[in-house]
Computed example of a mutant assay.
Amino acid sequence: MSLPSEIDLKLLVQHIKLTAKALGFQQVGIADVDLSQHHQNLDSWLAKGYHGEMDYLSRNLDLRKHPEQLHQGTRRVISVRMDYLPEDAKFAQSLSNSQQAYISRYALGRDYHKLMRKRLNQLGKAINQYCERQLNMRPFVDSAPVLERQLATKAGLGWTGKHSLIINQDAGSWFFLGELFIDLPLPTDQAVEQQCGDCVACITICPTQAIVAPYQVDARRCISYLTIEYAGVIDEELRPLMGNRIYGCDDCQLTCPWNRYAQLTQEADFATREQLDQPGLLTLFAWTEAEFLSKTEGSPIRRIGYQQWIRNLAIALGNASYSEQALQQLKDKQDVGEIAQLHIQWAISQQQNKAATASRKTARLIRIVEKGLSRDA
């Protein structure tokens, strides 16, 4: 397509970036649509089955590899970053207390998809107004076969960390990505150099060792995949490693040295909901399905559904220290399906084993004390 001769593309890019930041995006970059350098890695990752049951990742591969086919006429991708880290995230307190639930920090507030898509639409309207014509654009926020991380790196938003997430030297990795496909030959930004060096902190800390090699994650072992994307029966080998993480896992980001530079979100919608601020496992486990749907309305958590929610909580309760109340609530839970019930039964056995261990320790302590008293006598 052609533009009116008076349109200076460099000035347009400046306008796009200023407008995007005014709309609440912390960073904006522009990439071309050539992703050929990533094709082989994608094919290899899929061939190894590392995508688990996320079959959608193996569908529409041509569209995923060729953005210009996903939205006809696309010549550039405007990639944006929006920080989501809430204030006072209480990472350590939540992870260290086995009676509390740990929820990935991105999911503590409102769902980001609609918010970011709305802002990208507003950005598109601003571009149309600037150019005084209707351009061919389409926004995407984790909603189509888009290689968003690869596009973000091409657009200079950061580099790919060994945990496969995008890292920015000034903002760490606590951010969402979104894209606006556009049919203009805008000047592109330069990719930044990889700066992880010899650091393997994210690989070392992963509870389930899901990062099987630098830049390769086996989703089938990843707690985020298991608690969010996977609806089936979780291997017993992996359940104890999940701890109290009931929705997602942030360990690889928590240990990343670059996240010392992470920025707190400026979006009120991403602030922690009251009912998700260090919630107790038993409190969440006691929710009925109606309460779950009500309390997670507008939250990304809602999409996993009640049965998966209960399954995840059951595993966390099985991993928690012994509690008579927990054991009773597990036994009383009846309004669940077969998969959730299977994990509840596992949790019951775990709690009973801990009760038996505690009883043996108490009996041993009593014998030691009685023996000591008899000697004194």
Score class of each variant (00 low, 15 high):
Leu281Thr: 00
Glu267Phe: 07
Ala262Glu: 08
Arg273Thr: 08
Thr272Asn: 00
Glu267His: 07
Glu274Tyr: 08
Tyr261Glu: 13
Gln278Lys: 13
Asp277Leu: 04
Gly280Asn: 14
Thr265Asn: 13
Phe270Asp: 01
Phe285Gln: 03
Leu264Met: 11
Asp277Ala: 11
Ala271Met: 07
Asp269Pro: 00
Arg260Lys: 11
Leu284Gln: 05
Arg260Trp: 00
Thr272Arg: 08
Thr283Ser: 13
Cys256Val: 05
Phe285Ala: 08
Tyr261Pro: 00
Leu282Gln: 12
Ala271Leu: 02
Arg260Ile: 05
Arg260Asn: 12
Gly280Leu: 15
Glu274Gln: 13
Trp287Gln: 08
Phe270Gln: 09
Asp269Gly: 00
Gln266Trp: 10
Gln275Asn: 14
Leu282His: 00
Leu281Pro: 03
Leu282Cys: 02
Leu264Pro: 11
Ala271His: 06
Ala262Gln: 02
Glu274Cys: 09
Pro257Arg: 05
Gln275Tyr: 11
Pro279Cys: 04
Phe270Trp: 10
Gln278Phe: 00
Thr283Tyr: 11
Phe285His: 07
Glu274Asn: 12
Ala262Ser: 15
Ala268Tyr: 14
Phe270Glu: 07
Gln266Val: 09
Leu282Met: 10
Phe285Val: 08
Glu267Ala: 09
Pro257Cys: 05
Arg260Ser: 09
Asp277His: 06
Ala271Gln: 14
Asp277Ile: 08
Thr283His: 09
Glu267Asn: 05
Thr272Ser: 06
Ala271Pro: 00
Tyr261Val: 04
Gly280Tyr: 15
Gln278Arg: 12
Ala271Ile: 01
Gln266Met: 10
Gly280Phe: 14
